[in-house]
C-alpha cells in the first residue's frame, strides 16, 4: 500500500483516509476529497504535497499525506 506522502507525481486513486484528527478529515471531505477519488499528484514530497481533483488543486501537509493511502493508476 502506498502513502500519499511517499509517492512521486502521477495519477492515483485514494483507497483510504485514516487520520486521528476529525477536523482534518472534515476539511478534506468539505473540499470534496473522498476515498475512491482519482487524483493527480503534481508536487510530491519532500514537504507538503499538491494534488488535483477535478478543477480543484489541494495542498496538504506531509503529516496529513501520511494518512492517505493510494494506488497508482498509470505507470
Amino acid at each position: 500500500m502506498l502513502r500519499l506522502s511517499n509517492v512521486p507525481v502521477g495519477k492515483y486513486r485514494i483507497t483510504g483516509i485514516s487520520m486521528d484528527c476529525p477536523g482534518a478529515r472534515k476539511r478534506l471531505t468539505t473540499l470534496g476529497i473522498f476515498t475512491g477519488d482519482e487524483i493527480e499528484v503534481t508536487k510530491a514530497s519532500p514537504g507538503p504535497v499538491i494534488f488535483k481533483k477535478g478543477g480543484t488543486s489541494v495542498g496538504i501537509g506531509h503529516g496529513i499525506a501520511m494518512h492517505i493511502s493510494v494506488v497508482r493508476l498509470e505507470t
Partner: peptide
C-alpha cells in the same frame, strides 16, 4: 499538539 496544512490552491 501538532497540526497540518490543508488548503485549496486557487488558479
Amino acid at each position: 499538539e501538532s497540526s497540518h496544512i490543508i488548503m485549496e490552491l486557487p488558479p
